[in-house]
């Protein structure tokens, strides 16, 4: 397609959009709804992901060390654990730190403070707090701690107490993720199909015109051009309108949901501000691609 043909396609695309303004607005409206659906999906996905992450982060396993374990031994075990791929962090809590935390916690209770004083020595154990990549990893980690190499130095592993809960939680999280993914794909597919069919129907109304254009000697690209321009126009208009309401909407939503999401740790508004460029790009590309590709496929049918 040369420059002259391109400018003509551009002009006819604009003229047609304007002359069939109701049809054009209908197509743009459907695209707008589709993008709204995708926007909602995006928010739900992000909020869901962050919530699950926050729940996962709350799960950890405390390994209490036996009194026989020296600092070097504990540090060696810590280094060992940190070397594992399925463990994200290992925190060493010394006997003294444990005591300090304990005292701070029970400062208001004079009986406990008195009891500690009477004991004379530190009754608390040193411990390693282990956080795994995912809850599914804990059973394995607990199993490996039972090896004879570590056994003499390890008192108690909290995992055994919470085993049921952790295993079940990890199963629930996995299922939730899978359902989320399936729902996302299904809703996105519905949105795409609705848009595609709307545009297809709009172009179906032109199939006789397309046949006539061919009889007059128009090349396939000359016929396709204006339809693609029209698609581009509806796509960009709907994407720009989506962007116009998306960020204010997220800001309003953020203050209402952040209390529930990830224990107040996740700020949706900040997330959208940080990813503004990516989000804008996503809407523009999906709006434009959706409408131009639909137009292209729909017109192509009548060009064979």
């Amino acid at each position: 397609m040369n420059f002259l043909a391109f400018t003509r396609a551009l002009r006819w695309g604009l003229v047609h959009y304007w002359r069939n303004i109701w049809l054009s607005l209908a197509a743009t409206g459907v695209l707008l709804l589709t993008l709204a659906m995708l926007a909602l999906l995006l928010i739900v996905t992000v909020v869901g992901r962050e919530s699950l992450k926050a729940i996962e982060a709350k799960v950890d396993v405390t390994v209490f060390m036996a009194d026989t374990a020296t600092d070097e031994v504990i540090l060696a075990i810590k280094a060992d654990l940190e070397g594992r791929a399925d463990i994200t962090s290992v925190q060493y809590v010394t006997k003294e730190q444990a005591l300090a935390t304990f005292e701070a916690h029970h400062r208001a209770n004079p009986i406990i403070a008195q009891a500690l004083q009477e004991l004379g020595e530190n009754p608390l154990q040193a411990s390693l707090i282990v956080k795994a990549e995912s809850p599914q990893a804990y059973p394995q980690i607990a199993e490996s701690l039972k090896s004879p190499k570590y056994q003499p130095y390890i008192g108690k592993v909290t995992f055994e107490d919470n085993r049921e809960v952790i295993v079940r939680l990890s199963a629930v999280l996995r299922t939730l993720r899978r359902i989320g993914l399936i729902l996302t794909i299904a809703i996105a597919a519905i949105a795409v199909l609705v848009t595609f069919n709307t545009i297809r129907l709009a172009i179906y109304g032109y199939h006789e015109e397309i046949a006539i254009m061919r009889l007059v000697g128009a090349s396939p690209w000359f016929i396709k051009g204006p339809f693609l321009i029209e698609g581009l126009l509806s796509g960009s208009i709907s994407a720009l309108l989506t962007l116009l309401y998306f960020f204010p909407f997220v800001r309003i939503l953020s203050s209402r949901v952040s209390a529930f999401v990830a224990g107040g740790q996740f700020d949706l508004a900040r997330w959208s501000a940080e990813n503004a460029l990516g989000v804008s790009f996503l809407f523009l590309v999906s709006g434009i691609l959706l409408s131009t590709v639909s137009s292209w496929i729909a017109v192509r049918r009548y060009l064979r």
């Binding site: 069939n20 006539i212 061919r214 090349s219």
Partner: peptide, 29 residues
Amino acid sequence: RRQIGVVFQDFKLLQAKTVFENVAFAMEV
């Protein structure tokens, strides 16, 4: 087709274009 003019019984005009544009279209292509 750009070298052969055809007149049809049912006219086959582009309904979305004016008389001027219908004629101009044949030159534009």
